[in-house]
Amino acid sequence: GQQQAGQPVEFNHAINYVNKIKNRFQGQPEIYKAFLEILHTYQKEQRNLKEGLVTPGYKPLTESEVYSQVAKLFQNQEDLLSEFGQFLPDA
C-alpha cells in the first residue's frame, strides 16, 4: 500500500480544527454531524476510486463540491470555512 505515516503538522492541525468545530457547534450537533458526514462520504469515495471500485455513471464528490457543501453548513462562520480551505487540495 501507499499508506503514508502520519505527518505531525497536518495531523495536529486536523485535530485542532475538528475540535474547534465540535466546540463551535456544540449547540447545533446536527451541523457537526453533517460536516462529519460530508468528510466521510468524500473519504469513502476516494478509497473506492483508489481501489478501482467505480460505479458507471456515478460521479464522486470533487474537492470543490466538498468545499461548497461545507460552505453551506458554515454560513456564518467565515473563519471556520477559510480554515477548511487550507485542508483542501485544490479549493
Binding site: E10, I15, V18, L36, L39, H40, Q43, F87
Partner: peptide, 27 residues
C-alpha cells in the same frame, strides 16, 4: 485533552490526508 469519538477521529484522518495531498501538490 480531547474527547474524540470514532467519527471524530475519522474526520481528523480525512482532513489530514487531504492536507497531505495538498502539500504534495504544492511541492
Amino acid at each position: 485533552s480531547y474527547d474524540f469519538t470514532p467519527a471524530d477521529s475519522s474526520a481528523v484522518f480525512t482532513l489530514s490526508s487531504m492536507a497531505m495531498q495538498k502539500r504534495d501538490q504544492e511541492l
